[in-house]
């Protein structure tokens, strides 16, 4: 074994500049703890995880971004049903697991799902989605009535 094990405690030295990272590391420690106490790899594979999301409102549209590194676009499904936007899919592990000796397995695999309630002011037929560098960008244009309008009021 030539790579030396990464020691998460070493990362604690970065406090406080790496606050979020530390928090994640601590979570990971617990994750690993529970995983190893529960044992089977199956619990890992079948658990549903929730990817991180940003939602921004712009003048003419809503933009939803979902972090999905390593997910093939064929494995993502986006649906809109009575104003509930659902992004779901599966992150598949590479097929050729033979002759591979894993030293660390931290990335999540398996199903993911997130749902959001949208305001009714979205053109559902004009929703567009693009995958760039592991981030799914969903653009939801607003209907005309929902766009901000300038109303001039004449002062008499």
């Amino acid at each position: 074994m030539s790579l030396i094990r990464w020691n998460p405690l070493h990362e604690l030295d970065r406090w406080p500049s790496d606050f979020f990272g530390v928090q994640r590391d601590i979570n990971r420690l617990f994750d690993n703890f529970f995983r190893s106490s529960m044992g089977s790899e199956e619990t890992m594979a079948t658990s549903v995880y929730a990817p991180a999301v940003d939602i921004a409102e712009q003048e003419n549209e809503f933009v939803v971004k979902v972090e999905l590194p390593g997910v093939a676009k064929e494995d993502v499904k986006i649906s809109l049903e009575s104003n509930i936007l659902t992004i779901k899919g599966e992150k598949k592990q590479e097929k050729e697991e033979k002759n591979k000796n894993f030293h660390r397995l931290e990335r999540s695999y398996g199903s993911f799902q997130r749902s959001f309630t949208l305001p009714s002011s979205v053109k559902s037929e004009k929703i567009d989605a693009v995958f760039t560098n592991g981030i799914l960008n969903i653009t939801l244009p607003k209907i005309e009535e929902a766009k901000p309008k300038q109303i001039e009021v004449k002062v008499r």
């Binding site: 074994m1 590194p69 591979k100 560098n133 592991g134």
Partner: peptide, 27 residues
Amino acid sequence: ATLVTPVADIYETADSFTIRLDMPGVS
């Protein structure tokens, strides 16, 4: 910017080690 430690999978094959790091949004 928040400093993040990306999660990694590391595996070994007959002639190399491979590290896979999740870095969504990086070009």
